[in-house]
């Protein structure tokens, strides 16, 4: 696998959806390619950061308005 193919396979790799043989190939490439390693690590961190954003809770007044609207239906 070259850098080009690695770039296209990154998401499947971090989601653990890449076929085992490709996975091994990719990991071999990562031992020698600094930039691919950086992209994969920072992409993984990006996904983790977005996933860690706390759920935006519905404000109480908006909750009351919603329940009022559905009661009228």
């Amino acid at each position: 696998m070259d850098c080009q193919e690695i770039f296209e396979a990154l998401s499947e790799y971090i989601d653990q959806e890449l076929a085992q043989a490709k996975c091994r190939e990719l990991e071999r490439h990562l031992t020698t390619c600094h930039n691919c390693r950086v992209v994969i690590d920072t992409m993984r961190r990006t996904v983790a950061l977005y996933h860690s954003i706390p759920c935006e809770r519905l404000p109480d007044e908006a909750r009351l308005r919603l329940h009022k609207v559905i009661k009228l239906k």
């Binding site: 850098c3 600094h34 930039n35 691919c36 390693r37 950086v38 992209v39 690590d41 920072t42 993984r44 961190r45």
Partner: peptide
């Protein structure tokens, strides 16, 4: 990356 730039690693 192809042009040889060193990408910043902020993952840690």
């Amino acid at each position: 990356a192809h042009a040889g730039a060193v990408l910043p690693d902020w993952s840690s």
